[in-house]
């Protein structure tokens, strides 16, 4: 059913001058908290599957993109389909979190969170689903997990850092030791959200006016304007990033590509991709300027999983759920492996 039409210019001005839109509307309960992190539980009214979903999002932006609003929420789509969903929200770090490393996020937050979700759901297995850097973390955790991980889904998650589509010279100089950002990162301690946003924009779209052209082309449709407004709010909702985590990612991933080379160590355990035996689904997006498909695809060759597949989405980072349904390829794959 189409929504009532309004004046295009009124709609445009109303949308760009609106206050923060409501996001994260799917009913949820906090079942565990630690420092700023929260483990959210989204119950399903018509639970159909035994294996719950555990979602991990990135460190640089907020996870409400997974629950943007009715009809555009991946979480809502999952709960309506009969899955119990757990979301690990790392929260907004403060200066006191400046020493949090990748190891900390994996061992003290993800591992503990998965244990809590398993306890809470009384399930014997779990599905891990990670997005962007959260997908990389999900894969790393899966290499060292003692917990029963049945399925691993990584969405637009970088794995092979030998391919750098943007600032290739900068990466080469970082690898040769000609660039050392440690002094400035140590001085800051925690990277302010405005700098995180500028850094991400610089790496993807330093000049970005096309979202406004897109808004203008559909500004007479209130529902699409609301969706635009929610998505735009998310694209501007960056959070601070711990300098210790960024330094570790620069060395372990960008400089030494340890995950693919098999020499990454988390805590005191070797995090080798070949340790992964869970059913694997890796997802890339055809128009993703930040994480090209070449950075994701190599995981398929490195894991020991027998059941593994790769899917290419038409779109960018944000194309997750439409009309309140999970994307078809994911729905089918997951439902076949969740009982």
């Amino acid at each position: 059913m189409s929504t009532p039409k309004i004046n295009r210019w009124t709609g445009f001005i109303k949308t760009i001058s609106a206050l923060e839109p409501e996001v994260g509307l799917t009913p949820r309960t906090a079942i565990w908290k630690k420092n700023k992190a929260t483990l959210w539980y989204y119950p399903s009214e018509n639970k159909k599957y035994k294996v719950p979903l555990f979602l991990i999002y990135s460190l640089i932006n907020q996870p409400f993109i997974l629950d943007l609003g009715p009809k555009y929420s991946l979480i809502e789509a999952f709960t309506s389909s009969g899955y119990e969903v757990y979301l690990l929200d790392f929260g907004i770090p403060g200066y006191e979190d400046k020493d949090l490393t990748v190891d900390d996020y994996i061992l003290r937050y993800i591992k503990k969170g998965v244990q809590r979700a398993l306890l809470h759901s009384n399930a014997s297995e779990i599905t891990l689903m990670g997005f962007c850097m959260g997908g990389t973390f999900a894969a790393i955790y899966a290499t060292i997990a003692d917990e029963p991980i049945k399925n691993l889904i990584i969405s637009v998650a970088p794995i092979d850092f030998s391919v750098m589509p943007i600032f290739s010279e900068g990466v080469k100089m970082l690898q040769n030791g000609e660039i050392n950002l440690n002094p400035i990162l140590d001085a800051w301690g925690i990277i302010p959200p405005a700098y995180v946003k500028r850094g991400m924009r610089l790496a993807t779209v330093p000049i970005s006016y096309s979202p406004y052209l897109s808004l203008l082309s559909h500004a007479d449709d209130e529902e699409r304007n609301l969706k635009w407004s929610r998505f735009n709010y998310w694209t501007n909702s960056h959070i601070p990033l711990s300098a210790a985590a960024l330094k570790q990612m620069a060395v372990d991933f960008e400089k030494e590509n340890k995950l693919i080379n098999g020499n990454l160590v988390i805590g005191d355990q070797p995090a080798k991709l070949e340790n992964i035996t869970a059913n694997l689904m890796a997802v890339g997006a055809s128009h993703d300027r930040l994480i090209p498909i070449e950075q994701i695809l190599p995981i398929v060759d490195h894991v020991s999983s027998i059941d593994k597949s790769f899917h290419i989405l038409e779109g960018g980072h944000g194309s997750l759920a439409k009309e309140g349904k999970a994307p078809g390829y994911l729905d089918k794959w997951l439902s076949d492996r969740s009982n």
């Binding site: 600032f167 010279e169 900068g170 100089m173 000609e178 660039i179 050392n180 950002l181 002094p183 400035i184 140590d186 001085a187 800051w188």
Partner: peptide
């Protein structure tokens, strides 16, 4: 990139 790296060192030293 070298200029940015050098500048960041100067800024880091001042902040410290």
């Amino acid at each position: 990139l070298k200029a940015v790296n050098n500048q960041s060192r100067l800024v880091a030293a001042s902040i410290s």
